[in-house]
Nucleic acid binder design. Structure first.
Lengths: 152, 152
DNA sequence: GCAAATTAGTTAGCATAGCTAACTATAGTT
DNA sequence: AACTATAGTTAGCTATGCTAACTAATTTGC
């Protein structure tokens, strides 16, 4: 018989919560993914676009960092967004290497529309919850947000 | 001036909670994604493998349904898993069209290892939470799980 | 002031993951 | 026996991720 000692981190109640939270996040997004189709843009582009819409213009490198993605990946996403006229690219007057990427009106409109679709699908389901359960969920989301803000 | 009437669903507090939950899920998974690299398999394959490990053998169609994915997509994922010897495919004796897909010991081991890596990263962060916040989070995850189980 | 190092972004090429359309093969129905 | 329905595959498209290697521009060091 082999007796293996596992560190608490990998077996305790916190691990179980983490596991279920992880699983819930995966299945939640898988459900919402279907709604994205209506916008004609994928989730990664919509997410990058949301950074521009809510956070203002960025350089490509800043966008890549914000989306936790490598520059070549962001380069292609920005090219796609520009082709769809959802963003415009202008040169940085002080540094010709840099590009300034800005959401267009069309991009802003599309983002809000797509967001509404996805979130509405989720909200429709949340409506089936009892008010006190909804309140607990809201509280937990706030805890999660704070946790993510100070991740590493 | 144009006065647009928006349905409550698109502006109310439930919408705001849905929005933040959605955002939190996206950023959470983006953080955890990095841990997946160590297993050598992508998240979709690991997720399909987990169905087999925890739910037992399935046909391709059942797996596709469980993962909310089309048959061709699952066909390719199963082929990849089989190539890596993480699953084995046997013929259904009663129906030659069907395939029975089963996780191997290697697949089971790899799943647990990968899962441990991802979940450990999340758990490590959850450890920084005060106990009562962690309890609230656990409660909310339970609510979410129930919600997702009865989605549609 | 010019050469070297650093920084910003692109290009090329690879893998995974999603889709639809069209196909093969088996099973069930009439 | 012929048709229909079901299970998976193949082909081919798009999107998203990566690394390696490149170009161009700026900054640094002497």
């Amino acid at each position: 018989m082999t007796k293996v000692k596992l560190p608490e981190l990998e077996t305790g109640p916190v691990f179980a919560i983490a596991d279920q939270l992880h699983s819930a996040a995966i299945h939640l997004l898988r459900r919402l993914r279907k709604q994205d189709a209506a916008t004609g843009e994928g989730p990664a582009r919509l997410s990058a676009l949301s950074v521009l819409v809510f956070g203002g213009p960025r350089t490509l490198g800043e966008l890549a960092a914000a989306e936790q993605v490598r520059p070549p990946t962001m380069s292609r996403m920005v090219a796609g967004l520009a082709r769809s006229r959802l963003v415009v690219i202008t040169a940085d007057p002080h540094d010709a290497r840099r590009m300034r990427i800005r959401a267009t009106r069309k991009g802003t409109r599309l983002l809000h529309t797509g967001r509404r679709l996805r979130i509405a699908a989720l909200a429709a389901n949340l409506h089936s919850l009892a008010p006190e359960r909804l309140a607990k969920l809201a509280e937990a989301v706030e805890i999660l947000r704070a946790l993510l803000a100070g991740w590493n």
